[in-house]
């Protein structure tokens, strides 16, 4: 793996999440009704669901091996 790829890789998912969030924030504000509100809800639900899943996973006690 090249150095530049190693450096960029950790940012792929966070960058995608940030783009999805920004789209959701602007969709309901700039879009005029119709599909824009549900689109905003669906896209902004992504960081909510991700946070919830990882929070539950992180708070669960470690599995016994």
């Amino acid at each position: 793996m090249s150095i530049s790829r190693t450096r960029r890789a950790p940012w792929a998912i966070p960058a995608l999440l940030a783009l999805v969030t920004l789209f959701g924030l602007l969709a309901a504000l700039v879009g005029e009704g119709g599909i824009w509100w549900p689109l905003s809800w669906v896209t902004l639900a992504v960081p909510c669901v991700c946070s919830g899943c990882y929070l539950v996973r992180g708070l669960r006690p470690p599995e016994q091996s």
Binding site: L17, A18, L25, P47, C50, Y54, L55, G58
Partner: peptide, 20 residues
């Protein structure tokens, strides 16, 4: 370590919303 990872993970997931 568990809380460090959770702090970093939740922080980066909500970064755009929290920043705005």
């Amino acid at each position: 370590l568990r809380w460090l990872d959770l702090h970093n993970l939740l922080g980066i997931i909500t970064l755009a919303w929290f920043g705005i």
